[in-house]
Computed example of a mutant assay.
Amino acid sequence: MKKEVLIEFGIRVKELRIERNLSQEQLAEKSGLHRTYIGMIERAEKNITLVNIQKIANAFDLSIKKLFND
């Protein structure tokens, strides 16, 4: 069973990525993460680390706080 927080975080990352017209590959490049890892985050298949959350926030030019808030 997937944890709700992973599902919500994955949805948020996908919404921001689409809003910014980025492909998973482009977000991966900007964040220094692998494309398949981005997909796994969006599908709530990975329990992402705080370090990688920071990388994604940086790729979106957001603070971690803003990344988690709508």
Results as ranks from 00 to 15, higher is better:
His34Cys: 06
Val5Phe: 00
Glu15Met: 12
Arg12Ser: 04
Ser31Met: 06
Glu25Asn: 15
Arg17Cys: 05
Arg35Trp: 02
Ile38Met: 00
Arg12Cys: 01
Arg35Gln: 14
Ser31Lys: 08
Ile38Ala: 00
Ala28Pro: 02
Gly10Glu: 07
Lys14Cys: 01
Ser31Tyr: 07
Glu8Leu: 15
Ser31Phe: 08
Leu33Met: 11
Ile38Tyr: 01
Leu33Glu: 03
Gly10Cys: 06
Ala28Cys: 05
Ser23Thr: 15
Glu29His: 08
Ala28Gly: 12
Thr36Ala: 01
Phe9His: 03
Lys14Asp: 05
Glu25His: 14
Gly10Trp: 00
Arg12Ala: 06
Lys30Glu: 05
Val5Arg: 04
Lys14Ile: 00
Tyr37Gly: 02
Glu25Leu: 14
Gly39Trp: 08
Arg17Gly: 07
Tyr37Lys: 00
Leu22Phe: 11
Ala28His: 04
Phe9Thr: 04
Glu8Asp: 13
Leu6Thr: 06
Leu33Val: 10
Leu33Phe: 08
Arg20Asp: 04
Val13Tyr: 03
Arg20Lys: 15
Glu4Met: 06
Val5Leu: 01
Lys30Ser: 04
Val13Cys: 07
Ile7Lys: 14
Ile38His: 03
Glu15Gly: 05
Glu15Pro: 04
Leu33Tyr: 10
Glu4Asp: 13
Glu15His: 14
Leu6Asp: 10
Phe9Gln: 01
Ser23Tyr: 11
Arg17Asn: 05
Gln24Leu: 03
Arg17Ile: 10
His34Ser: 11
Gly32Ala: 07
Arg20Asn: 14
Tyr37Glu: 02
Arg17Thr: 09
His34Asp: 12
Leu33Ala: 01
Ile7Val: 15
Glu4Lys: 13
Lys14Arg: 15
Glu25Phe: 13
Arg17Phe: 07
Ile38Val: 13
Leu33Asp: 08
Ile7Phe: 09
Arg12Met: 02
Glu8Ile: 14
Arg35Pro: 07
Thr36Trp: 04
Leu27Val: 03
Gln26Arg: 15
Arg17Gln: 04
Arg20Ile: 05
Glu15Arg: 15
Gln24Pro: 10
Glu25Ala: 14
Gly10Asp: 00
Gln26His: 12
Glu19Tyr: 09
Leu27Ser: 06
Glu4Thr: 14
Glu8Ala: 15
Gln24His: 12
Gly39Asp: 05
Glu19Gln: 13
His34Trp: 11
Gly10Arg: 03
Val13Asp: 01
Lys30Gly: 02
Ile11Ser: 05
Thr36Pro: 01
Tyr37Trp: 01
Glu19Ile: 00
Glu15Leu: 12
Leu6Glu: 06
Gly32Phe: 09
Tyr37Cys: 04
Ser23Val: 12
Gly32Arg: 07
Leu33Gln: 06
Tyr37Pro: 02
Arg17His: 10
Asn21Gln: 13
Asn21Ile: 08
Leu27Met: 05
Glu8Ser: 14
Arg17Tyr: 08
Val5Ala: 07
Ser23Arg: 13
